[in-house]
Design a binder for these strands. Structure first.
Lengths: 211, 211
DNA sequence: GTCTATAGATTGATAGAC
DNA sequence: GTCTATCAATCTATAGAC
């Protein structure tokens, strides 16, 4: 087994268990057992459990942020070219759509998305700060774009509403099943694509409502 | 020290630590040390750590649910009396306002609200199921009312959007500070009251937007 | 790089005196 | 009901052979 294999197997297993059982509820033994590697290899390759979490997050979040940034900059550039402000709907889609579609990009990506969906409300600073630092730049870019798109809203109100939108999106990201409330008396959940479209409609309407 | 004192002290300390450090990251020793009671008293009074969590949640969630149910039934009764359907805005306010105002009702209530705000996305079933079971009835009542208020929306769409609204609210409940993204380049967060009003506007607009 | 073995600390839970 | 003392299991991390 080459070094690369071992590292990847550890990352994959850690991603799955951190997402499904929680960081503090996952032991290194559970990870190495699932990955079928030796216990000591985690500390050899990553140094510590905290550093392993950081590696799990960075592996997928850095590429995802690249995609989101490209999309947002694309919307801004197009608007500039046409001499009009960007629209809030386009900016939100540029941020949200790649994130949720990322779930289907690989088997582990689904676990990863629920892991970072939970990161904002994570009580432990180890997890939360690691995530926040990587997301802040793209969040600021999105906020700046939305200020141009919705100049009638005060920046403080807009920032608050954008955080509402992020909260809504995080909730969807966490839902492994398409519904938290599963009960025979309630309607069947929507399919994945309709869900994303409804999410975009929801946050767009909320963001643009008059003060 | 009477029995009642000890139980209450344990509940208060557990509430604070579960909320701020997370359930699995909080040891019984940390709880009894903060409560200034004996380690063995937790298992004497509650039986286990899991049962303690259940007690922490039930202590405040049962009264809160009573308030929310009364408010929602009040809106439904008033509408029936006037022979018109209830409004989505009134129903949402009846559910959301008591929840967020509950934070100021006692020193520990703030911690409790962030604890249950995180419960929906909690990976561990111990925490999540304990919370879900207590919240499902009030959620169904709210959903039924909203079906009357917004008959133009299909129940499946409405259920999805209501879950978006719950997700948005959960996010606000988790935020101890009024902003997750605190950064010198971003505007200052809004005060508590404006935040609640903005939250109501946001989810109301999102809920009512055309399909 | 991979392994065994283990150190060293911490955990939830309990037995038994008072 | 409260306490001390402790068990048995688990944890992260590391030392050292190969």
């Amino acid at each position: 087994m080459t070094q690369c294999d071992t590292k990847t197997r550890i990352l994959d297993s850690a991603e799955q268990l951190f997402a499904r059982e929680g960081f503090h509820n996952t032991s290194l033994r559970a990870i190495t057992s699932l990955a079928d590697v030796n216990l000591a290899s985690v500390n050899y390759h990553f140094g510590s459990k905290d550093a392993l979490l950081q590696a799990v997050i960075e592996r997928r979040l850095l590429p995802l942020n690249q995609i989101r940034e490209t999309q947002i900059r694309g919307v801004l550039a197009q608007a500039k070219e046409e001499g009009i402000p960007p629209t809030a709907a386009d900016l939100l889609r540029a941020f949200i759509e790649p994130t949720l579609e990322f779930r289907n990009s690989s088997p582990g990506a689904h676990d990863f998305i629920s892991l970072i969906g939970r990161s904002l409300s994570e009580p432990d600073e180890t997890v939360r700060n690691c995530f926040l630092a990587l997301v802040l730049p793209i969040f600021q870019l999105l906020f700046k774009g939305l200020c141009e798109a919705l100049p009638q809203l005060s920046p403080a109100i807009l920032l608050t509403r954008l955080q509402f939108a992020i909260g809504t999106m995080s909730h969807v990201m966490c839902m492994g099943s398409l519904s938290v409330f599963n009960h025979p008396e309630l309607p069947t959940p929507l399919d994945q694509n309709t869900l994303i479209q409804q999410l975009l409609k929801f946050v767009h309407a909320g963001l643009e409502t008059p003060e």
